[in-house]
């Protein structure tokens, strides 16, 4: 008996130690990435970065104002498409089509869609929008990112809605509320926090997407907010500036990376602070 007890105790400690080590490793990795980017990007993070356009090679004091604005526009467009469509699909999967063959079909489609490499989505939007409009455009970029967001938002919304106890649906139905009001006024507000946090994760996912933008929004060295013109974005500029042979451009790319990660992280934090309600987590 004694030996068996010791054996279990040792295993237990080993496993706890292993879990602790994994935690340390993953948080260490996050700190390492953040620290490295901050170290390289912070020196260039001044007012010029946010207010100026890129300076010609050899000149001081350029910024990436057009890319910061462009990223916000692209993400905004993506949200306009991805949030309502994704949440709608999530509600359908969880509440309406749960056990039907049609629901199974939609679930399969969402799974396939989330598995499509983003560059394929880029090519698709290129062929339906860029070719038709005969120009790279912010619109095309936003559509591509929006399509990428849909499955992410849909699956998360479905998962969160599944965590809302069935008893709440029954309680609401038993009050004589029509089904759509039960979903809209009782179930969605209860799940709002989880759905909102899921949306910020999806935004974080597409904010750094670069591949589809090569085919859609391309890039722009000038200040341009027109939806039908090519638009700059932080990931595209990071790619261009980081691969160029000039030290000053490298610094701009590092700062771009820092700004991008700051936008994403602050969006996630804001959602966690501001969204009311329950912490339903998957």
């Amino acid at each position: 008996m004694k030996i068996l007890e010791n054996h279990r105790l040792i295993w237990s400690r080993l496993m706890v130690g292993f879990c602790g080590l994994s935690t340390l490793l993953i948080s260490g990795l996050l700190l390492l990435v953040l620290g490295y980017i901050t170290l390289h990007g912070l020196p260039g993070a001044n007012l010029n970065f946010f207010t100026r356009l890129p300076a010609p090679v050899g000149m001081e004091g350029g910024g990436l104002a057009q890319a910061v604005a462009g990223s916000f526009i692209l993400i905004g467009l993506a949200c306009l498409i991805g949030i309502p469509w994704g949440i709608g699909a999530g509600i359908f999967l969880s509440e309406v089509g749960k056990d039907s063959w049609w629901g199974e079909g939609v679930r399969f489609a969402v799974d396939v869609l989330s598995g499509v490499p983003s560059i394929i989505t880029g090519i698709f939007v290129y062929s339906i929008l860029v070719v038709k409009l005969q120009s790279f455009s912010a619109l095309a970029g936003g559509v591509a990112l929006g399509i990428i967001m849909v499955p992410l938002v849909a699956r998360n919304t479905e998962g969160i809605l599944q965590l809302v106890p069935q008893g709440l649906r029954e309680a609401a139905l038993a009050l004589g509320l029509p089904f759509w009001k039960v979903i809209l006024k009782i179930i969605l507000p209860t799940a709002a926090r989880g759905i909102g946090i899921g949306v910020t994760l999806a935004v974080a996912g597409v904010a750094g997407e670069t591949a589809p933008l090569f085919f859609t929004s391309l890039s722009n060295n000038y200040w341009s907010l027109g939806l039908l013109e090519p638009i700059a974005s932080l990931p595209m500029e990071i790619f261009r500036y980081a691969t160029a042979p000039f030290a000053a451009w490298h610094e701009l790319a590092w700062t771009g990376a820092l700004v991008l990660i700051t936008i994403v992280v602050s969006g996630m934090l804001l959602a966690r602070i501001l969204l009311p309600g329950y912490n339903f987590r998957r």
Binding site: A171, L173, G176, P189, T190, P276
Partner: peptide
């Protein structure tokens, strides 16, 4: 259901 109400086993108040 408006004329015939129901109370359940677990107190299922709307948490939001």
């Amino acid at each position: 259901r408006r004329r015939i109400g129901m109370v359940f086993q677990a107190p299922n108040v709307f948490p939001a």
